[in-house]
């Protein structure tokens, strides 16, 4: 069955069962592999993408639910890694293995889109769904604070 999706501004026709999680459509059918699989049950955030600007776990979102909406993945967050969160991530040196970081960045970008200067508590709440096995949490916090500065300047 064909489903039409708009991902990073480009329209794609994919032949999948409509209930197929977006994660697998994005990775395996469309070939955008920046969005990662970590748990498949909405518990790790590695697959976080934006649908109409809101952070969503792609592993638990059916492809059909994104029809007619704007899907943004890490590859579409900015053209040359220039989103304030990406710039801050490089500056602070947040990633270690990097596997969770697409999800972390998408969650952080969504937070900063609604809260220009999030408090520590707000950062914790917005980022608690995103596991980082490498333990980059102190730098994620520093990265979000720095991104907020960059965005504000």
């Amino acid at each position: 069955m064909a489903v039409t999706l708009t991902i990073n501004g480009t329209s794609h026709n994919v032949d999948v069962e409509p209930e197929t999680p977006l994660l697998w459509v994005i990775r395996d059918n469309i070939g955008l592999t920046g969005t990662k699989y970590g748990c498949g049950i909405s518990r790790c955030g590695a697959c976080t993408i934006h649908i109409d600007g809101k952070p969503v776990k792609a592993c638990q979102t059916a492809a059909s639910a994104a029809v007619g909406k704007q899907v943004t993945t890490i590859e579409g967050l900015s053209k040359d890694s220039t989103h304030p969160v990406q710039v801050a991530w490089v500056e602070v040196g947040v990633p270690q293995c990097g596997y969770c970081q697409s999800g972390q960045i998408m969650s952080a970008a969504a937070l900063l889109a609604t809260r220009k200067k999030p408090s520590d508590r707000e950062i914790d709440a917005a980022m608690a769904d995103n596991i980082c096995r490498c333990g980059t949490y102190p730098r994620i916090k520093a990265g979000i604070r720095r991104a907020s500065e960059i965005a504000g300047s």
């Binding site: 955008l32 590859e75 991530w89 490089v90 990633p95």
Partner: peptide
């Protein structure tokens, strides 16, 4: 490796 790990 960092620049690669912020854009997928």
């Amino acid at each position: 490796d960092i620049p690669h790990k912020v854009n997928g």
